[in-house]
């Protein structure tokens, strides 16, 4: 394997459409819950330990060869908001296109056939990592990092936040990213034997509720 493949997959410029999404930051800014670097950090920390933790475990489990159809159903059960399920599938479809072009793989082809409208993004991410020769921990890092990098860069645009401040937030979260990625791999290994119930199911009520409100806005800067 080439570890450098991780840089390609995790790069914000990887053409998988993530830049159009704020990970709930736009709704949180509008509601006045995110107003600057400190509240952005708190937002990102909460998202990392809930949605990020679940995504990282799903991605790691896909790398370890757990049936992606079961993982996709587990993602549905952990995503009550239909707006967030639709977003996850849309991002999954976009990532699938980019990943198949970059790292052709029969497993990615099979998943694309199974879910023509898109599988949940972390499941696709895991299989893309596998196709790129990466390991479960790599995929977990990638998913965990995406769960905070999206909101951080979106908030730069939403609040005209100083980009140095947003990057500082991400750097301060690094030790917790390590922790979440490690726990995700541990849960994914358990999932290989015990099934998908062993995956974390950490929920974030405000992310779920405000995703529905955001989806109903007539005008918005970000798709989610």
């Amino acid at each position: 394997m080439s570890r450098a493949a991780l840089l390609v997959l995790a790069d914000g410029r990887f053409p998988a459409g993530g830049h159009a999404h704020s990970g709930g930051a736009e709704a949180a800014v509008k509601a006045g819950r995110v107003t600057g670097a400190a509240s952005l950090e708190d937002f990102c920390r909460g998202r990392l330990h809930t949605a990020g933790r679940v995504s990282a475990a799903l991605a790691a489990a896909a790398v370890l060869g757990v049936d992606p159809v079961r993982l996709d159903a587990a993602a549905d059960a952990r995503t009550p908001s239909p707006a967030l399920r639709a977003t996850a599938r849309k991002l999954g479809r976009q990532l699938m296109r980019a990943a198949r072009a970059t790292w052709p793989s029969s497993e990615l082809d099979a998943l694309a056939r199974e879910f023509p409208k898109g599988a949940h993004q972390p499941v696709v991410l895991g299989l893309a990592a596998r196709a790129a020769g990466l390991g479960a921990l790599d995929a977990a890092y990638c998913a965990a990092y995406e769960s905070v990098s999206g909101p951080a860069s979106a908030t730069v645009r939403l609040l005209s936040l100083d980009p140095f401040d947003a990057t500082g937030v991400l750097a301060r979260l690094a030790p917790e990213l390590d922790l979440v990625a490690d726990q995700a791999v541990e849960a994914a290994r358990e999932c290989v034997d015990a099934g998908v119930d062993a995956l974390p199911a950490a929920s974030a009520p405000l992310l779920e509720i405000s995703a529905e409100a955001h989806a109903a806005w007539a005008v918005r800067l970000f798709a989610s």
């Binding site: 509240s39 708190d42 809930t50 917790e176 974030a204 992310l207």
Partner: peptide
């Protein structure tokens, strides 16, 4: 449906923040 809420002292960070509660 599979949902877990973890909150209070000792819970992972951000539980009382703008993404969770």
């Amino acid at each position: 449906l599979d949902q877990e809420l973890d909150c209070g002292p000792g819970a992972p960070g951000g539980w009382d923040g703008p993404a969770v509660l």
